[in-house]
Design a binder for these strands. Structure first.
Lengths: 148, 148
DNA sequence: TATTGTTATACTCTATAACTATA
DNA sequence: TATAGTTATAGAGTATAACAATA
């Protein structure tokens, strides 16, 4: 099994999931990526835009573009962070929370489908392997690694 | 381990790989997705645009857009398929093959990095799990499945 | 009738670079 | 000096819909 086959299977799995997610989220006029933002914000605490970007794997410019769209729709709000006035805390609005709950419910079948062919330990294994993959690919690795 | 955590780890792994691939391919002025097209075409036989789309997980309009860009660069050529004159066979040009070989070589380190933290059986397991994931998400599953 | 590919069009995500303001 | 976010800009990938040619 080659690294290239791994790359391709990763691509095909991600794109399939992304399309199916898009199809569900389109009901509310948002995209799969925007749903990822809502989901990240729904997990309790508020985040700065940078922190949000780190969580969802998008850079600050991309994050801003998505937030502007979501703000326009009334799903998120950004308030100045008192402690560090360069930063802005991002949070779901009441409407954002409500919309997210609805979309979460409507995507329930999809999440079930996703793990339907996997035993519980297989899901755990898969997540673990994917995370170690992501760690291997962190940009800081690239330069000739020499640590004493 | 929840389905949502699986979805997120899949997203983060794919995006990390995509970015790293983009960085390598930028040397030749192409994108990670265009490299995927070249790789698919390099595997020997020529494909129709539809077949190509199926392999790389993109729809026919997207495929066309990418092929137009690659054709403009002189990396691929499309010739009428005699047997079915609606279709067009896509193939790498000489320059396309040469460029692909160079890029393949330059992305060697990246592929090594990708599997560096994985034992060989783990890579095989991962590919197998990802494929079964993709299969679970095939769009035909969605409607209330009732087959006699 | 169904399929392959094209045309026209639009939108989101993505990224770079230069900038402001805060730290 | 470095960081958080913005502005301006551009490009790629994506998708939908209507269409032509062919099967």
């Amino acid at each position: 099994m080659t690294a290239h086959e791994l790359a391709m299977s990763l691509r095909l799995a991600y794109l399939a999931l992304h399309r199916r997610t898009d199809a569900v989220m389109a009901q509310a006029g948002i995209t799969a990526d925007q749903f990822v933002v809502l989901a990240a914000l729904s997990e309790g605490m508020t985040l700065t835009q940078s922190e949000l970007g780190e969580r969802i794997g998008s850079d600050r410019n991309t994050v801003r573009a998505m937030l502007v769209l979501l703000e326009r729709r009334g799903f998120v709000e950004r308030t100045p962070q008192p402690l560090d006035r360069r930063a802005r805390r991002v949070a779901l609005t009441k409407e954002g929370r409500s919309t997210f709950r609805t979309l979460w419910r409507k995507s329930d079948t999809l999440r079930q489908e996703l793990v339907t062919s996997l035993a519980p330990e297989q899901t755990a294994t898969l997540v673990q392997l994917l995370r170690s993959l992501t760690a291997s690919l962190s940009p800081a690795d690239t330069p000739a690694t020499s640590s004493p």
